[in-house]
Design a protein around this nucleic acid. Structure first.
Lengths: 242, 242
DNA sequence: CGTTATTTTGACCCTGATCAATAAGGGTGG
DNA sequence: CCACCCTTATTGATCAGGGTCAAAATAACG
C-alpha cells in the first residue's frame, strides 16, 4: 500500500470505509470531499421487518442506501390487493429523485440497515456531480430492465414458472456467483409466502403448492420454511419458461 | 420576435425547428451547436406497422427519437409467448444506453417516423452534456414509474380492469388533456387486439369479450374496430380497480 | 407447554384460456 | 363499383389453472 493511498483513505469518513455503497453503489461516484460532506448529514438506521420506510403519497424527505437486508417496494389498489413492484438489496439506492411525493410504498422485508441522507444534500450533489447522475441513470436503467423482465413473468408465465423464476432471482441476488453454471445454491428466503405471492401476482396458497411441487420433483429442499437449497441450478432454470 | 431570437433560430437545424423532441424530448437538453452537430449525423426514417426496429440480442448501432406513431417494446419466451413491456410515443427516446446488445425487441405498432442517430454521437454528447444525462434520467424514471404501474395491472387486476386501464392509458397518451375530469375522449387504437392481449397478459379472445362488455355497458363505442369513443372518462376510471 | 403466526393441504368454484366457427372489414382487381 | 379474398375481430362451447374458503400441520415464541 503506498503513502498516497494512505492519505486518500484518511480523507474518507470512517463509516464509509467498508461500505458496499461506496464501492458498487451511488457513493462510488463521489470524490473524498463530497463523501465527507455527505457523511456529515447522513445517519445509520436499523429497521425491523414490516416497518414502513416510505409511505404512499407521502412527501419524500430523504434518500437512503440499503446497507443490508431487503426492502420491498409495493403498490396497492384501493380494495387492498397488493403488488410488489421491486426489491432492493444492498447496495441499492432508495428513493425517487425529481418527485415531491412517492407513488409507492417501501417496507422492510427483513431486518434492514440503511444509510439515510436529507433530500436536499443529494439533490445539491447531483447538480454538481455528473458522475453521480451517471450512476443513478445506470442503476435506474438496470431497474427498468429488471421490471420488464418481471412484466414477462407476471403476464405470461404459469404459477410454477413464476415461483421457479423467483427462486432463481433471489439466488442470484444473494450470491451473484450463482450464474456461471453453479451446481447448487442455498439461501434464506427474504420474503414470506404472502410476500412472494404479492410479488408474483398469485395467491399464497398457490405459491405454497408450487413449492411443494418443486420439492416433490427433487428440485429444491426446504428447511424451517425459510431456508432453501437448490441442488441443480440449471434444472431449476429449465422450469422458468426460457 | 426580437433579432436575438432570429439569430438563435437560424442556428437551429431546419428539420429540428418544429420537432417535438426538441421541445419535450431529449433534444431539449442540447444547445444550438450541439443540435447542429447531432443533426448532421441524424436521418429521418419511416417504418410501416410490423417492421422490427431493434432485434433481441442484436447489437445496438443507433438510437432514435420517435417523431410520430407508436413503437411497441416486446420480450418473448422461447416457446413463443410474448409480452409487450412498453410503448413509446412521440417524443420518446428509443434505445438502451450503456449496453452493447438489446434485451428486448422494438417493433412499429403503427406507421412510425423516427429520427435516428449513430450510437457514438449520442454517447459522446452524453459525456459532454450533463443536461442530456439529466433528461435521460428523468425519462427513464418516468418509464420505471409506468412499468411499475403496469406490474400492478398485470399481477392484480381482472381482465375487465386491465382493458379499462389500457383504454385510459391510451386516451391519456394520445390526448394529454384528458386527465382533468374530461367528459369524453375519442381516438384510434394504435394496437390490434392481439397486441393489446400481449400487453395485458390476456388472450385476444378475452380482450375482445371485455370490449364487448364495456360497449354493452355503454362505457365505450367502437367504430371500424379501431376507433374508440369514451363518453364518460370518469365512469371508465371506476372500472380500473382504483 | 400452551398460544399465535405462518405454511401446507384439501375441496370446490370461477375466471379466463383454448379450440372452433362465424362475422366484419379492408384491399385488390376485374 | 362490386365481387372476392384475406386478415382481424367477435362469439360460442368447453376446459383447466389458479383463486377462494376452510381446516390441519408446523414453526416460532413467550
Amino acid at each position: 500500500m503506498t503513502v498516497r493511498q494512505d492519505i486518500r483513505s484518511f480523507r474518507i469518513p470512517v463509516l464509509c470505509g467498508p461500505c458496499k455503497a461506496r464501492h458498487h453503489g451511488v457513493c462510488g461516484a463521489l470524490d473524498p470531499d463530497q463523501l465527507v460532506a455527505l457523511a456529515k448529514t447522513s445517519s445509520r438506521q436499523k429497521r425491523e421487518p414490516g416497518v414502513e420506510l416510505i409511505g404512499n403519497a407521502e412527501a419524500i424527505g430523504s434518500y437512503s442506501n440499503v446497507l443490508s437486508g431487503v426492502v420491498k417496494l409495493t403498490k396497492s389498489l384501493s380494495d387492498g390487493r397488493q403488488q410488489i413492484v421491486g426489491l432492493r438489496f444492498a447496495p441499492d439506492f432508495l428513493g425517487r429523485p425529481f418527485k415531491v411525493e412517492s407513488a409507492i410504498n417501501a417496507e422492510a422485508a427483513t431486518t434492514v440497515s440503511l444509510c439515510t441522507f436529507p433530500k436536499g444534500a443529494i439533490e445539491r450533489m447531483m447538480k454538481e456531480s455528473p458522475e453521480l447522475q451517471n450512476r443513478l441513470l445506470k442503476q435506474t436503467l438496470n431497474e427498468l430492465d429488471a421490471a420488464r423482465e418481471w412484466m414477462v413473468t407476471l403476464g405470461r408465465k404459469t404459477a410454477l414458472e413464476k415461483v421457479a423464476s423467483f427462486l432463481l432471482m433471489i439466488a442470484r441476488n444473494i450470491d451473484p456467483a450463482v450464474d456461471p453454471a453453479a451446481r447448487s445454491a442455498c439461501f434464506d428466503l427474504p420474503l414470506t409466502r404472502v410476500d412472494i405471492a404479492d410479488f408474483l401476482g398469485l395467491s399464497d396458497e398457490t405459491v405454497s403448492r408450487q413449492f411443494t411441487r418443486l420439492r416433490a420433483d427433487g428440485l429444491i429442499r426446504i428447511e424451517n420454511k425459510r431456508y432453501v437449497t437448490v441442488d441443480s441450478v440449471s434444472r431449476l432454470e429449465q422450469r422458468c419458461g426460457g
